[in-house]
Amino acid sequence: MAGGAAHRRPLAGALAALAALSACSLFVGVGALSPRMLLDEPDAVALMLASRLPRTLAVLLAGSGLAIAGLVMQTMARNRFVEPSTAGTMQGAALGILLVTILAPGASILAKAAAATATALATTSLFLAMIHRLPPTQPFLVPLFGLVYGGVIGAGVTYVAWQADLLQLIEIWLNGEFSGVLRGRYELLWLTAACVALTWWVADRLTIMSLGREASVGLGVDYAGMLRVGLVIVSGVSALTVVVVGAIPFVGLVVPALVSRLAGDNLRSTIPLVGLCGAMLVLVCDMAGRLLRYPYEIPVGTVLGVVGALAFLAILHAGPRHG
């Protein structure tokens, strides 16, 4: 089930484009920095290592992780119109961080990430259990329900935060941006790379899962077990992203849906493409956010809110050829 030459060509193109964009990203920012200065000025090297490089790495990790999380979410829900931010996962993660912030204000960022993962797991499991009852002939009901469900949890989070006078923090968690990323403050995001590796490891079983429970059982795949693995991947990536940079919408929706249309759903061959395109989309949006109102920044969550919503509408308009 290897990809074959037809799959490798877009992959090589995406890899080259991402490398070029990443190189550009290193030199886009408020402080003047050029490749030449790196050779001459020690301050330039320090800026690169303390800010620009961590920021670019954080973008790449979050972008690829979220796209993969969306891919896994869509596989589990067997619906192409869902992703962590439209299924209550991101809101669930924010709820977890909020609770830790209120109950144990001094908790470490790792503890926050763990709590956020746990609550995201709970809200996502509930989402999957509930969409199970929706008629499979109506694929649009799933994202619709997801938006309402996420909205309800988000409203609950906002209410609790308002009561606890923590509204500004909510703003930070629910609207992702990379301007605060510095060396020493983003490293937790490397755990999303572990989640991506886990997805790669179970790729064939996830593909079989997309054929449904009965086909999975027939092929000897532990369907319930794979659902749990998928939930951990989705919740883990979402929680880590929310904790470190804040929620970033639509990446997990748009990228897997487009790749599926172009290259199909055999995860073993599409995971690399989904990861690369996710990283590229977030990187482009982050650079646009840095440049549009230069020297001020627009948060990547806002940029993607606009770009992603338009792409989402385009995908919806193209119709559910296959649900």
Binding site: R78, T207, G212, A215, G264, D265, N266, H322, G323
Partner: peptide, 16 residues
């Protein structure tokens, strides 16, 4: 069985 996945026929049969 209502396959909603975009798998090529050869890939699908290969999963057997």
């Amino acid at each position: 069985p209502g396959v909603s996945s975009r798998l090529r026929v050869r890939e699908l049969v290969g999963f057997g």
